[in-house]
Amino acid sequence: MLSPYLTLPLAYLLGSIPTALWAGRWLFGLPDIREHGSGNAGATNTFRVLGKQAGSLVMAVDVLKGFVAASLPKWLANDTIADNQLLYWQLGCGALAVLGHIYPVFAGFRGGKGVATVLGMMLAIAPAAVGVCLLVFMAMLLAFRYVSLASMTAGLAFAFLQLLPPFRPANSVLVGVGFVLAGLLIYTHRANIGRLRSGTESRVPLFGRQ
């Protein structure tokens, strides 16, 4: 078993993998996706610039980054972490993976907004609430075709779901984390909010609709 302190830099490095940038460059021949669309190296901009196939691939890998990072303490250092401390190590590793996604060391510290990586992180920690939030995300995406709006709505749903008895966590710290993450999602999407209000936000194509 590793020292739990070693899982922290591993989580950051894992989050720093610039999925959108590398997939765009190596699989789709686009030198730098950050020079197109919204300028972000994330799943939403990949959907916008390269389409559903590329966007789905990037989203899946970015979710996996968060899931694996938040699971590192349990997988690699469980025997050296007290049971009542495991959640804090998982949150720390997940947060560092999100930080790595937003500021990736492998891509000049210019990454994405971290939505998919946050999703993966919380899927490892609170899978039941995240499952409901995925349904909320899909419903909003199908209804309006704005990934940004669907992401923010799902983030708010996660925060408020944890106030309900079926999803209330044993450790109340998670409730606070949920609201912090919702606030972070709204903050990182402030430009999208402006475009939504002005009617200039790009929709993602679904079922052949633009």
Rank of each mutant, 00 (worst) to 15 (best):
L50T: 05
G51F: 00
G51P: 04
G51V: 02
G51S: 04
A54M: 03
A54R: 02
A54T: 04
A54Q: 03
G55H: 07
G55F: 08
L57C: 04
M59Q: 06
V61W: 06
D62T: 01
D62A: 01
D62W: 01
L64E: 01
L64K: 01
K65Q: 02
K65Y: 00
K65A: 02
K65R: 04
F67Q: 01
L72E: 09
L72D: 11
K74Q: 09
N78Q: 14
N78G: 10
N78M: 10
N78C: 10
D79P: 09
D79Y: 13
I81G: 12
I81K: 10
A82V: 06
A82M: 09
D83T: 13
D83A: 15
D83I: 08
Q85F: 13
L86P: 13
L86D: 08
G94F: 02
G94D: 05
A97Q: 12
A97R: 00
V98I: 15
V98N: 02
G100C: 07
G100Y: 00
I102P: 12
I102G: 08
Y103F: 15
Y103K: 13
Y103A: 14
Y103E: 05
F106G: 11
A107T: 11
A107F: 08
F109P: 10
F109D: 10
G111V: 00
K113A: 15
G114A: 07
V115S: 11
V118T: 14
L119C: 13
G120Y: 03
G120F: 01
G120H: 03
G120T: 09
